[in-house]
């Protein structure tokens, strides 16, 4: 038993963190800076990390990059393409796409997925769809394909959603174990996304508490503020521990166990991340409730990733079986 990150994993995490710090939006105003977003897109495309899974990377490595990108509010697609890459890889391993199953649209979608230009559909919505054409989905064990139509801004200010251009059609089937494993990975990457965003929100709040003065002192010197932030910091630590295990489990445990590990991680992290973001808003006071403060951008990202591939407490195994 040794659950430390390897040197390579730490280096990958640090590289993702640097990229996010250099090119992620540093303010709400930055979200509208198309030149910055274009530089970010180019930099991420150059890393090849959107195809980490088809390149053989583990769930741990994918989760580390997702977490750092969310911490830096990376506002070009990542989670969507990573999951599409996973689906496409499993589809081809299963001998898909099934011959003759692709009409013009689904053929377009599959072709886009093959070249890394796809995202996934969740409940009929193309998530994380900015600039992407291909669209893959999983319905039970059936892999569906189509293309992305018009994109819109949604609740999450850092990611666009899209309408499918038309109905998705089945292009192949995965075995149940593989389909479950896809769900585990999807739960893990959305959990990593929430954790990263929560860490970003906590840093924002803690740094603000060091400089904002009231009654002649930095507000972080008051226990009422400091204790809120300390609780948030402890929640981060708990979430890191459950996520680490779930990310490892994606490739190392039986699929049903991997899903259980991921459900625990997501259920824990969802509550933790929401609390941390709410704390950040509170510490910012009135400013935290304005559109210009990044705190709500983190919160919106957390809320969105919580709803994608949701984890409910009812599904948690109580250890009776």
């Amino acid at each position: 038993m040794d659950v430390r990150l390897t040197t390579e994993q730490r280096e990958l995490r640090d590289a993702a963190a640097r990229l996010a710090d250099d090119l992620g939006p540093g303010s709400v105003l930055d979200l509208a800076d198309d030149d910055r977003a274009a530089r970010l897109e180019k930099a991420i495309a150059a890393t090849g990390w959107r195809t980490l899974r088809s390149d053989g990377a583990s769930g741990v490595e994918v989760a580390l990059v997702v977490e750092e990108f969310a911490r830096g509010l990376i506002d070009v697609p990542f989670v969507g393409p990573v999951l599409a890459d996973e689906l496409y890889t499993r589809l081809t391993e299963a001998g898909g796409p099934t011959e003759g199953s692709t009409d013009g649209v689904s053929a377009d979608g599959v072709a886009a997925a093959a070249s890394g230009g796809a995202t996934v559909a969740v409940d009929g919505v193309a998530i994380d769809a900015k600039g992407l054409r291909g669209l893959l989905g999983l319905d039970g064990t059936r892999v569906l394909a189509g293309t992305v139509g018009a994109t819109v801004e949604g609740v999450d200010l850092t990611r666009l959603t899209g309408e499918p251009a038309g109905p998705l059609t089945a292009v192949g089937t995965l075995d149940e174990e593989t389909a479950l494993r896809f769900r585990a990975l999807a739960l893990v990457v959305t959990t990593a996304d929430m954790l990263g965003a929560a860490r970003g929100a906590l840093t924002l709040g803690a740094e603000y508490a060091k400089v904002r003065q009231q009654y002649g002192h930095a507000i972080g010197s008051y226990q009422a503020i400091a204790h809120l932030l300390a609780e948030a910091r402890a929640l981060v630590e708990g979430a890191v521990s459950v996520l680490r295990h779930a990310a490892w489990a994606v490739d190392e445990l039986a699929a049903a166990e991997a899903v259980q590990a991921a459900l625990v991680a997501k259920a824990y992290t969802e509550r933790a991340a929401r609390t941390i973001c709410e704390t950040s808003i509170q510490v910012h006071g009135g400013i935290g409730n304005t559109w210009e403060c990044l705190a709500h951008v983190f919160l919106r990202r957390v809320l969105t990733s919580a709803e994608l591939f949701p984890a409910t407490l009812e599904e948690i195994d109580l250890g009776l079986s």
């Binding site: 803690a206 002192h217 972080g220 400091a226 204790h227 932030l229 300390a230």
Partner: peptide, 9 residues
């Protein structure tokens, strides 16, 4: 935690 980990004053 506030003083030694978060570095709050």
């Amino acid at each position: 935690i506030a003083g030694r980990i978060l570095g709050l004053p």
